[in-house]
Design a protein around this nucleic acid. Sequence first.
DNA 1: GAAATTTCCGTAAACGATTGCAGTCAATGA
DNA 2: TCATTGACTGCAATCGTTTACGGAAATTTC
Lengths: 344, 344
Amino acid sequence: MKTPKPTSKNSIQELAKALKLSPATISRVLNNHPHVHTTTRNRVMAFVAKTGYTRNVMASGLRTNRTNTVGLIVPKFSMFLHTEVITTIQSGLHAHGYNLIICQSNDSIEMEKDLARTLYASRVDAVIAACTLFTNDFSHFDILTENNIPVLFYDRVPVQPYPACIVKGDDFRGGFLAASHLIQLGCKRIAYISGPLTCNIYIDRFAGFEKAMTQHKIPVRKDWVFYHELTAENARKTMYRLFAKPPFPDAIMAANDVTAIAVLEYAKEVGIIVPEDLRIVGYSNDPRSAIITPSITTIEQFPVNIGKVIVTEVLKRLKNDSDSEVLSPEPIIVPVELIRRMST
Amino acid sequence: MKTPKPTSKNSIQELAKALKLSPATISRVLNNHPHVHTTTRNRVMAFVAKTGYTRNVMASGLRTNRTNTVGLIVPKFSMFLHTEVITTIQSGLHAHGYNLIICQSNDSIEMEKDLARTLYASRVDAVIAACTLFTNDFSHFDILTENNIPVLFYDRVPVQPYPACIVKGDDFRGGFLAASHLIQLGCKRIAYISGPLTCNIYIDRFAGFEKAMTQHKIPVRKDWVFYHELTAENARKTMYRLFAKPPFPDAIMAANDVTAIAVLEYAKEVGIIVPEDLRIVGYSNDPRSAIITPSITTIEQFPVNIGKVIVTEVLKRLKNDSDSEVLSPEPIIVPVELIRRMST
DNA sequence: GAAATTTCCGTAAACGATTGCAGTCAATGA
DNA sequence: TCATTGACTGCAATCGTTTACGGAAATTTC
């Protein structure tokens, strides 16, 4: 082990020595404190600009207990919703001087626990998280909330009450819109492919679907509802089972565009005509859903809006030290819209 | 301004007091130093596990001058290549105990400069960057290299020599493969849509294209080569000009799948049959290129491989304090492959 | 049995920025 | 002329962890 290198060439004390001032004054200039003479302020500013001095975030963070850094945990970057949300959050926070540490849990609970600890160790000022498909116990976030680090969940959020801000798309309405759309087109035999019901988004989307069905007095066939991870392979297996023997469904509603795309490709392969024989609705407005032929009707979640809401909420919580101010414990619901395309 | 809260409940001194030991001993246990009695070690470990103590990264970073954090700058998360590379890097580094701060420059040089400074302020242990389309001056990374923070570039990299590790796909070969493929199919009138030539990847891809053309003694028509940002709108404009009056090209090579997709959609709209009337080749193997009808022939860059190479290179540079070891200054080239699809 | 090791642990000084407190100096008022 | 005020600046402690150094105890060696 080596000793840390001698006083770095660009510390506040170096500047102080060169300018024949005390470190305290330099610090005050850097932090825009009042009661610094304009002359010295300018002198310092000029010198800082010349030497390219940059504040050591660790030292100041240690002292002030703030890092100007926000942690973000998502299941997978590559999911379209998240790439959009992340982009929005990152630029939004950057505009306010905050950095973003982005981590991916890869849908593993162990990894998610690990990341929560690591982010706490880094003493980030806040944490934003979209959870694993299977996270139903959220106690690994306790270490953050207990230490007054605000936590915000979005998309995949706790179902039970949890002391954190929650932002989500209107999944219930999304499910409802999609199902209503199919029903209005005359579909009577609608199959539903859902993700695992451990996850709030799939619960809500399915509930919306059911609502629309019962509203129109169409029974939901148990054997036409599937719950599994929404991968392309699983979707193909489901399609195989669905079309093994009649009666065949006249529409398929998928809780996910990846699934909807796989469904469509399977249909094209086996000669089922979309939308004449089978109508398909997806969820998320993945860019691929617009490009495939026929293009797929889907639910737009407006990830940019979700990101914006998160930014304003997280900034609120970062600004006020006084936790006195009332921060709505109610989930914030971001509206969704149906985008009609050729698959219906 | 408030004073920082009194000694945090979970500091090394708290543990020391509770266990009637000195902070030094606790620290030694935590860092696996030798010369700690097994009994005390176990006692400490047990207590740490029980209380859930987590090392304050800022304090230890301040002392040791290491943060176990790597910074990453990309132009846009949403670009397929980058989402894949980032994913690989993040999980690779996490396995070795490193965090990743991911930033996006949004193809703005100002933002990129800003980010380089911020990452230096955070005293990250290394920086990985894919530059802006327009970055040709790389001096804003000097603050990092001058302070012995290793810098690695990938994809969009400096053309001039720069004291940093460089990892890139084999763009020259990619361009060459794509062009050769078209030529072998009998195409004689090949148009080329390139990104701006400020960027190494477009220079190299075009050079590969030219090489193949001259090798087969096919002249490159100046008015059939276009340089502009590779957006869908620009591609449509170019297509409009290309097909305004004969002679028409019999193939289009796009330096980018976004462009290839836009080209294909335009062709479908105006009734040009692909591949009979016009063959199309793209670059990157964007997931959309496989899904569109007809699917588009493209160049696979193996982003996962690029990510893996970056991880091993960055780890090399993080491990050895002695900069004596020879680290190849030569760019590392990751092979590419042509994927043939229906558009040719 | 004394000396020389070795093993273990505590002391204290860093790392660099921040900030309450106190001191200096000039300007002002009585 | 002296006290008072206020603007400006410096002193020094602090944040939590690491680590060189030295001391004490236990062990080995001759």
